[in-house]
């Protein structure tokens, strides 16, 4: 496809950012269908696709070919994977179907990738919901530039959930303030999800602690709303998690009584 065409269109070459745009972009359809483009080329080709019905047809036909390649690799999934996934699904809120009115009111922002997600943490939700929803819901509900970060957070959750000994626990007080955790004793990992703690008083922060048998509480950092906290160095001494209100920037040791506290016994810690 490198020859210069003799027709009027064949001579036109456009240079944008050093990439030759034009007929050669069509030749990317096959590597695109095989997911064999780098991210930059993928974006370039997808932009091209939007205005090229012929390419869309071609990509659809090629996708049917790759589906067969996928089928050829089919292997029964491990049985316990099914249980884990169905459990997580029961606890995971779905993204709101588009179009989402809120987005339209804001005026023209494309709904794709920005659709706000209903973070409906029903009081009756399964314990996993506190954690799984909190994080998974973040993953695709934000602007594109944060997507990578949030994918990473989702991956952390999936990683903890995937541990063979992963267990979940949650607590909630009469005012609905809660703390949820999915933890793996074997990996020393936990994902902690606060819910409905409200904003701390002016000039104060919510700080998360792990309480330890025979040792001082250790800070797991300041909370940012309902953003879950991932930690990977819990050990057997960890007995509970607690959130306190601390002066701006946090304290070295808790200085107030916990707003909410969750024992880790049921998730395999704190002997």
């Amino acid at each position: 496809m490198r020859q210069t065409g003799t027709g009027p269109l064949g001579r036109i070459r456009l240079y944008v950012g050093g990439l030759r745009i034009g007929r050669t972009v069509h030749s990317l359809a096959v590597p695109y269908a095989l997911d064999a483009l780098d991210p930059q080329e993928t974006r370039r080709f997808e932009r091209h696709l939007e205005g090229c019905p012929r390419c869309t047809d071609e990509v659809r036909a090629l996708a049917a070919d790759t589906v067969r390649l996928a089928h050829a690799a089919s292997v029964p999934a491990p049985p316990d994977l099914r249980d884990r996934i169905l459990t997580a699904v029961r606890a995971t809120e779905q993204e709101a179907p588009e179009p989402v009115p809120v987005v339209r009111e804001r005026g023209g922002a494309p709904a794709r990738g920005r659709a706000p997600v209903l973070v409906a943490l029903a009081a009756s939700a399964a314990v996993l919901a506190l954690v799984a929803v909190g994080v998974l819901v973040l993953a695709l509900g934000r602007a594109d530039d944060r997507l990578g970060e949030e994918r990473a957070a989702t991956r952390e959750i999936a990683h903890v959930l995937a541990a063979p000994d992963a267990r979940a626990a949650a607590t909630r007080d009469a005012d609905g303030r809660g703390l949820g955790v999915v933890a793996s004793r074997a990996r020393g990992q936990a994902v902690v999800a606060p819910s409905r703690l409200g904003s701390p008083p002016d000039g104060r922060d919510h700080q998360l602690w792990v309480m330890r048998a025979g040792a001082a509480p250790r800070s797991l950092g300041l909370l940012d709303g309902e953003t879950p906290v991932v930690t990977d160095d819990l050990n057997g001494k960890a007995s509970s998690l607690a959130v306190t209100v601390e002066p701006d920037g946090g304290s070295v040791r808790p200085t107030t009584a916990p707003v909410v506290q969750l024992t880790l016994k049921s998730v395999g810690f704190g002997e």
Binding site: R60, V67, I85, V89, T92, Q94, E95, E98, L140, L161
Partner: peptide
């Protein structure tokens, strides 16, 4: 592989409404 499959199927559950039949089969 199990981790990635979990991520993918949870994403499938969460974002199923985004599927556009005009672009190809559901399986694809």
């Amino acid at each position: 592989s199990e981790e990635v499959v979990q991520e993918v199927l949870l994403e499938l559950w969460r974002t199923a409404a985004r599927y556009d039949p005009a672009r190809g089969s559901a399986l694809s």
